[in-house]
Structure formats: structure tokens, C-alpha cells
Design a protein around this nucleic acid. Structure first.
Length: 857
RNA sequence: GCGGGCGUAGUCCAACGGUAGAGACAGAGGACUUAAAAUCCUUCCAGUGUGGGUUCGAAUCCCACCGCCCGCACCA
């Protein structure tokens, strides 16, 4: 018997699966459907270990479900628009399409070496004109349905990428891709009206019981619903802004209205702009705020600064007025961009009030203590209202209601629900994206392109020698007749945010070649996605946008209501990490550049010691990456997959180690050897195991069936590490099996075949090869999942520990179905227990059937 | 600051509130071998971050604290 040769064997079975079209979805199948989807990759050019982990998990699910009698849809495609292609084009003086499609070819070839059970016939890239044509059609439908708006808005402008960023793409005040500090600019942009769905998106989170709680909480927080009161304060008559009679503020704490110390507005508030015209000091202050507004340092220091406008607002219930400041900590795009400050019960407000010597009056006291004072720390806890006229003695919630009622009766305000969620700005001043299919006509205004003219194709002859949008400066592309009047007009040169592309690809996979965005019969058959798998980094953006899109597509007739939540179950996998290696004199070394001898690590080239750094996510900058292609070439795809699924729970980070993958390789060889060594003694395929009077035979059969039960359950629950451990256990049992005879041989065949079938979702090539060696002429891929015999998964007699006062003192063998009285009798008769009781009677005996006995003395 | 998660052998991880060990990695000893690799056998190692509480019984539930990780972050 020779060693298992992963390279040739894997290629052989991949070819067999492909030529038999094993994984092309059977659209005519009457079996129940199961749609398993991994987040599709960006075609960067090479797969990385994160992909291997993601797709290994998805493939386990897909293959197991397939064996368990489901019609499985398991597609793959490419999230292919985006900045890197343009950057590459600039660097290489090439074209983004050329770079992208070459990368797709390279990555497809790499993915195919993983042996994934994908339906490649459904493959598409989001940069395919056939795909973005449909996206443009939907954009027009969304326009017609009022799901889009176009508004001038202050946007996040990335000065390096020269593009607009969504709020979600700004991280710590910097662009998520470029890392450059983001500036504010006012541009007219297209927005998806996601806020129209804020309530639905929020409430439906409760129904997503197949999602991790963590992600649900993140989505809830992102939508950020709050209940409050909008109040209009009268502005005292003045000369500086005579047109402004009222200042409207939003508050979630109307109960603290009597504790008001000042009013404050955002530097971007229209009132601030007007006042600045006649006040150069204020103008300078606003200018300063704009500069430091989003920078990291400003946020870190969080120093509250303000500028007294000279205006005063009247308290609605008191004969008292308060100064109005322009303050740097007031956000224009939340609430009304204006607040009333209640220093005693808001930390920001007290910081501000102390700095500018403003009124601080506590109005909520813990325990109703009327002498309650605050110093420099705001009190935000529960309590009773004090110092507040008609509110005194009320609890906070009652006071909120009372103020709301009174203000409403005065016509000075009303209850208002606010959201943190903003509309989704999708305009991007980039070339490599889906063109927004509208035309600007001097006569007709903004006109959608006619659907029969779609797609609005990206021109091929573009240059990237200067920053900015090549579509904007293209000689002819944007000139087009108006779809309405036929006169000369110009196309919109903005393209869509690439998150749009990924917000509906899962629906397109159901009917990837349809002439419309979706084929209703196909999406009704396959959606929602039964199991979606990907990185937690998409917990907010991509998933929220997709949920919005499903709703928008339902509204425009592209999906049914049953797909309103597009992902029935979601699993977020952990990252792949690796040690880092720091060379003497600085700089990072890659894992190939070091030698490890026990705990001593040295550099291969210099032989000098290397400092082992922290174990962190694989990244190019720290050079701690391992190339999946090298691993697959060296050990085989099955080993890479097996190791990825071993040890660490899938939701947690996994550390890639050389030792770990070698362990996986040993297991592969071991299974191969066990199958081949056993072969001569095995009965023919199809020989059913029989009852045996040999304990060892029965024991092996029990291990086999317990493993079938456990692995089945573990895979269903995404506990792949435990499934792997169970398979190791079964392997160990087979390896140490010594019994002989026909009954033993039959049990051994059963054990080996079960082992092969249970491993198949994880190491499919090895499984096929072993299956063939075992004498089968059909493929594992076409073999149903093994079923555990219930009577072999339970034991007739069990060992029960006996505790005395909670500590284990002895154990007894009892029949599994022995009743409590019998167990108690046996336990109390146990030698060790008799001795401990020393003639006395136990105070209490607790018998947990099948588990434990506890004797209390 | 707010929200969430995680702390178990040297390491990664298991353990319906019920015997702390399923499994892997690493280590030690041995067998086989001229030797090595591979393989096989044997074996060492924690009382579960700390302190309380609930319970017949706590790694598991509750409270406080410590440490690490993630998300949001001037959202009124």
C-alpha cells in the first residue's frame, strides 16, 4: 500500500464531479430546498486563508445537506467592482476590467483546487454588464417607487480616493479604504431611502432567530431608535436674527426641562450660518469647528467649546431666558441640530456649563432627596423629580409624559421618534462601478434612461493618469439624447457604491441568466438563503443594506414578501491568525523565512534569533500570511479544510500552525491506511452487520453509531470542531479494534464506511477515494447520509458516580433504565458509602436517573 | 463612556447545573529500524481568572472585581 497522494487523487475527483455535473443545482427536483451561501469574494487575485475557512465551512453544510436529502443551491460569484481595480489600473497603466477578469480567472482556478461543491454554472461577476444592467433596471424601478431621493448633503469626502463615503465607511474620521482623514463637502447625491424602513428593519430583527445575538444587537444599535420630544423655544426679540422666532430642539429627557441652563446649536445649523454673517468671531469659530470636526484628536480630547450667539430663548413654563451657544459637540444630522442643555443630568452639558459658568440645577434626585447636588459628574440614574414645579415628586417616565402633554397643549412641540440610521448615499465619483442610469436634461430635468437602452455601459477607452472620475472627463460618453425629449443631454457620471452590487447578488444566483433582475418562480423557490456564512466585519453594512434591498425589491415586485428577510440563518466565522516574527534590527519575517526548533526561532537567511510576536489576523503588513495555494500543493485541499475545521470553534479565531496542518495530514494518511489494511478481511459491500456475542464488536458498533449521531448534530449546529473530535474518536476505535470473525469483519466495514461518509463533507476527496477502495462503484457524493441506529447509541448499563455531600466517593454499575429506588438501594449498599455512613442514616439521597447519586449526610 | 463576548492542563479546545477530559497539538519514555522518517504502545500535566452568593451539587446560574478581544462612540 502506498501513501495517499492528495495531489493526483484530488484532481481526479474534482474532474469526476465536474464531468458528472454533480453540483449543478437540480431545478426540477421535488426535494426540499436548501440554499447555502458564503459571502462572495472580492477578486483581489489570490485566495487567502480566510476564504479557505469560510468556504470549507460552507461546503461542509452544502455537502451534508445534499447527502441528507435536500436540493442544494450553492453558488459562487465575484464582488468585482471597486477601488482596487482602479488603483491597479493607475499603477500598471492598464484597464480595471482586464485586471479584474484576470484575477477572477486566477481565483476561480484556486477555488477549484479546494474541491468545493459549487454550482459553477451560475457564476457571475458584479462587473458583468449582464449583472449591472439588471441593477440599473432596479434603480429605475426604485426611482419610480419613491425609494430614492436626490439631495444636497454634506458628505464625507475622501481626499485621497477623491470620492464620497457612506457614514458606515468612515472609521475614526478616516476613509475605510484610504485611511485618510475625511473632509466635509456639500454635494448633490443619490440616496436610497433606507430610513423609510427604519422601523421595519428594527422590528424584524426580533424574527431573525437564526442570527447571532451579537449581530442582532449591532444592527439594533446601528438603527438607534430613540423616543423623545421635539420642542420649539421662543427666541427673545433681537436685532441679530430677527427672522428666527423659534428654536426647535430634540430631547429624550423632557423631564429635565426645569433644569435647563442653556441652549446650543450645531456649527452647521442654518441659524449659526446666518448669525455668522454679521459676526466675524462666530464665523471664525464655526470655521474652526469644521476643520477639527471629524478629526480623531478632536474626538479624543472631546473638549466642549462654544460661542455665545447673544440670542436668548424663553423657557416654555418659566419666566426665564437662557443663552444660546454654538457648540462643537452638537451634531447637525441628529435630531434638529439643536439642544437644550440640562447640565445636572448630562455629562456633556455639565462639562460645557462648568466651563462657561452656566446654570446647574439638579431636577432628578435619587431617593427624592431635595438637597441633592451635582459637582462635575452628571446624574443620569433613576430618581424623583425636584425643583420642577408641577413635576415635583414624579418619577422620570411620568414626568416625561407630563411635559410632553403640556408642551403639546401649548402648541410648542410634539413627541418624536428619532433614528441614528441615515439614508444611504450611493453616489460615487468613480469609474469602476455600476453607472447610475439617469440623464440630466436642461428641459426635462433628471430623466431615467429607457430600460431598452440598458445597460448604460462603462466605456472601455478611459485613462487613469489623473485622479478623479474618468467618466466625467471622457470625451463622448456622457453625451446622449434625453430619453424623454430627445434633445442633447448629459449622463450622470457618478457610479453606485459597490455595496449596492452585493445587496442583491444572493437573489440573482437563483436565476443568474434571467432577462429581468429576478425570475419570480426561481426566487420563490430558493429564497431566503437558508444559511449565510461570512465574516463578522459585515455585521452592519452589507447585511443591513441587503435587508433593505429585499424590502425595496419586494416593493418593486422583484421579490416576494417571504424573502423580506433574505438570510434565514447567519453564521459569522472567526478570523485566521498566525504568529508574527520580528527580525533582529526590525522588520517582519514571513513564516517561510524562519526556522522553528522547539521554542527557538531563527531567521533562515541570517541564522539569527527571531522574536516571536503576537498572534494576530493574517495580514500582508505583518507578513504573517500563509498562502493556501502552497498548503494545498503541499498537503492537499482536504488537509487544509480539515485543519480549518478542527480545534477552534468556528465563530472564534483559529491560529494557523504548521504543526496543526501536519496533524491533519497524519490523520488523512491514517484513515487511508486503516481502510487499506482492513480491506482484505472486509465482507462484500452491502453486508449488514449482525448481532454479536463479542463485546468488542458491539462496542465498535456503538462507537460507530454514537459518532454518526454526534457528527450529524454537531454539523447541524456549526460545531465543526466537535464533529472533528468525534471522527478522531471513531478513527481511534477502528485502529484499536482487535476482534476477529465474520461478525467483527462486518462491524469493521460498517465502522469504516461510516467514517468515510462522516468525513466526506470535510475531506471529500479522501472520502471518494476510500469509498472506491472499499469496493463501491458509486460516488460518496451520491450516497445518502448514514443514519444512527437508536439502540446502538445508548448503553444498557452505565457507570453512575456516587457523591457524598457533593464529592465523588464511589461509583456503581447499574442498568440504564433502573428506577430511582433501585439506584438508591445500590448506592447505599456500596462498600465505600456504607463505610462513610458509619451506621448512620443519610439526611437525603438525590438520584438523577442516568446521571449521578448524591448522598447527603 | 455605552453595548457585547471570552478567561478550563504547556497550547488549542470538550464537558443537558451532575465523575473536570471527547479530541488535537506539544512534551517524556519505549517498540520497530543499521539509522532516520513514518508507524505503534505507554505516559506526564489543570480543579476551571479572583472573591462572594444560590444549590444536595457550580467551569456552567447570580453579584462584584481583574484581564483580554470586538462593536459603537459628543446620537441630546
Amino acid at each position: 500500500m502506498s501513501r495517499y497522494e492528495a495531489g493526483t487523487t484530488e484532481a481526479k475527483w474534482q474532474a469526476a464531479w465536474e464531468s458528472n455535473k454533480c453540483f449543478e443545482t437540480d431545478t426540477a427536483s421535488a426535494l426540499p430546498k436548501y440554499y447555502v451561501l458564503e459571502m462572495f469574494p472580492y477578486p483581489s487575485g489570490r485566495i487567502h486563508m480566510g476564504h479557505v475557512r469560510n468556504y470549507a465551512m460552507g461546503d461542509v453544510v452544502a455537502r451534508a445537506k445534499r447527502a441528507q436529502g435536500f436540493a442544494v443551491l450553492h453558488p459562487m460569484g465575484w464582488d468585482a467592482f471597486g477601488m482596487p481595480a482602479e488603483n491597479a489600473a493607475m499603477e500598471r497603466n492598464s484597464h480595471p476590467a482586464k485586471w479584474t477578469y484576470a484575477n477572477i480567472d486566477a481565483m476561480r482556478a484556486q477555488l477549484k483546487t479546494m474541491g468545493l461543491s459549487l454550482d459553477w454554472s451560475r457564476e457571475f461577476a458584479t462587473c458583468d454588464p449582464e449583472y449591472y444592467a439588471q441593477q440599473q433596471a432596479m434603480f429605475i424601478d426604485f426611482m419610480d417607487a419613491g425609494l430614492l431621493s436626490r439631495k444636497k448633503a454634506t458628505v464625507n469626502w475622501d481626499p485621497v480616493d477623491m470620492t464620497v463615503l457612506a457614514n458606515e465607511q468612515v472609521i475614526d474620521g478616516c476613509g475605510w479604504r484610504s485611511g485618510a482623514p475625511v473632509e466635509k463637502r456639500a454635494l448633490t447625491q443619490w440616496f436610497f431611502r433606507i430610513t423609510d424602513f427604519a422601523d421595519d428593519l428594527l422590528e424584524a430583527i426580533d424574527t431573525l432567530d437564526g442570527w447571532p445575538e451579537k449581530v442582532r444587537i449591532m444592527q439594533r444599535n446601528w438603527i438607534g431608535k430613540s423616543h423623545g420630544l421635539q420642542i420649539r423655544f421662543d427666541i427673545e426679540a433681537n436685532d441679530i436674527a430677527p427672522d428666527w422666532k423659534e428654536l426647535e430642539v430634540y430631547t429624550t429627557r423632557p423631564d429635565t426641562l426645569f433644569g435647563m441652563g442653556f441652549g446650543a446649536i450645531s456649527p452647521e445649523h442654518p441659524l449659526a450660518a446666518q448669525l455668522a454673517k454679521g459676526n466675524s468671531g462666530l464665523a471664525a469659530f464655526i470655521d474652526e469647528c469644521r476643520k477639527t470636526g471629524t478629526s480623531e484628536e478632536a474626538l479624543e480630547k472631546a473638549e466642549k467649546r462654544g460661542f455665545d450667539t447673544g440670542l436668548r430663548v424663553k423657557h416654555p413654563f418659566l419666566d426665564e431666558t437662557f443663552p444660546v451657544y454654538v457648540a462643537n459637540f452638537i451634531l447637525m444630522d441628529y435630531g434638529t441640530g439643536a439642544i437644550f442643555g440640562c447640565a445636572a443630568h448630562d455629562q456633556r452639558d455639565i462639562d460645557f456649563a462648568r466651563k462657561y459658568g452656566l446654570k446647574v440645577l439638579p431636577v432628578v434626585a435619587p431617593n427624592g432627596d431635595e438637597s441633592f447636588e451635582v459637582t462635575d459628574e452628571a446624574y443620569t440614574g433613576p430618581g424623583t423629580i425636584i425643583n420642577s414645579d408641577f413635576l415635583n415628586g414624579m418619577e422620570i417616565e411620568a414626568a416625561k409624559e407630563a411635559v410632553a402633554d403640556r408642551v403639546a397643549a401649548m402648541g410648542k412641540g410634539e413627541k418624536k421618534t428619532n433614528y441614528r440610521l441615515r439614508d444611504w448615499g450611493v453616489s460615487r465619483q468613480r469609474y469602476w462601478g455600476c453607472p447610475i442610469p439617469v440623464v440630466h436634461c436642461e428641459t426635462c430635468g433628471i430623466v431615467p434612461e429607457r430600460k431598452e437602452n440598458l445597460p448604460v455601459r462603462l466605456p472601455d477607452d478611459v485613462t487613469f493618469d489623473v485622479p478623479g472620475n474618468p467618466l466625467e472627463r471622457h470625451a463622448t460618453w456622457k453625451h446622449t439624447p434625453c430619453p424623454a425629449c430627445g434633445k442633447d443631454a448629459v449622463r450622470e457620471t457618478d457610479t453606485m457604491d459597490t455595496f449596492v452590487d452585493s445587496s442583491w447578488y444572493f437573489a440573482r444566483f437563483c436565476s443568474p441568466r434571467a432577462e429581468t433582475p429576478t425570475d419570480r418562480a426561481a426566487v420563490d423557490r430558493w429564497l431566503p438563503v437558508d444559511q449565510y456564512i461570512g465574516g463578522v466585519e459585515h455585521a452592519i453594512l452589507h447585511l443591513l443594506y441587503s435587508r433593505f434591498f429585499a424590502r425595496a425589491m419586494e416593493k418593486t415586485g422583484h421579490l416576494s414578501d417571504s424573502a423580506r428577510e433574505p438570510f434565514k440563518a447567519l453564521f459569522t466565522q472567526g478570523m485566521v491568525t498566525h504568529e508574527t516574527y520580528e527580525a533582529q534590527g526590525g522588520g517582519w519575517l514571513s513564516p517561510e523565512e524562519i526556522t522553528r526548533d522547539g521554542s527557538v526561532v531563527t531567521a533562515k537567511d541570517t541564522g539569527k534569533p527571531v522574536k516571536v510576536g503576537p498572534i494576530i489576523k493574517m495580514s500582508k503588513s505583518k507578513r504573517n500570511t500563509v498562502d493556501p495555494e502552497e498548503i494545498i500543493k503541499g498537503y492537499g485541499a482536504d488537509c487544509a479544510r480539515w485543519f480549518m475545521l478542527s480545534d477552534s470553534p468556528p465563530e472564534r479565531d483559529v491560529e494557523w500552525t504548521e504543526a496543526g496542518v501536519e496533524g491533519a495530514s497524519r490523520h488523512t494518511q491514517r484513515v487511508w491506511r486503516l481502510v487499506n489494511e482492513a480491506l482484505p478481511r472486509l465482507p462484500a459491500t452491502g453486508t449488514a452487520p449482525t448481532a454479536s456475542d463479542q463485546d468488542a464488536v458491539t462496542a465498535l458498533r456503538k462507537v460507530t453509531h454514537k459518532a454518526i449521531k454526534s457528527v450529524t448534530e454537531d454539523i447541524a449546529a456549526f460545531r465543526f470542531n466537535k464533529a472533528v473530535a468525534q471522527i478522531y474518536g471513531l478513527t481511534n476505535a477502528v485502529a484499536s479494534f482487535k476482534a476477529t470473525g465474520a461478525d467483527a469483519d462486518a462491524a469493521l466495514r460498517e465502522a469504516l464506511e461510516s467514517l468515510v461518509l462522516l468525513m466526506a463533507p470535510m475531506t471529500p476527496h479522501l472520502a471518494e477515494e476510500c469509498w472506491a477502495v472499499l469496493g463501491h462503484t458509486t460516488m460518496v457524493t451520491d450516497t445518502p447520509w448514514p443514519v444512527a441506529e437508536a439502540k446502538l447509541t445508548v448503553d444498557d448499563t452505565i457507570t453512575m458516580p456516587i457523591q457524598v455531600n457533593g464529592k465523588k466517593r464511589s461509583e456503581i454499575q447499574v442498568a440504564a433504565d433502573a428506577d430511582k429506588a433501585k439506584v438508591e438501594e445500590l448506592a447505599l449498599a456500596d462498600e465505600a458509602i456504607v463505610k462513610l455512613l458509619d451506621g448512620g442514616a443519610p439526611k437525603k439521597v438525590i438520584v438523577v436517573p442516568g446521571r449521578i447519586v448524591n448522598v447527603v449526610i
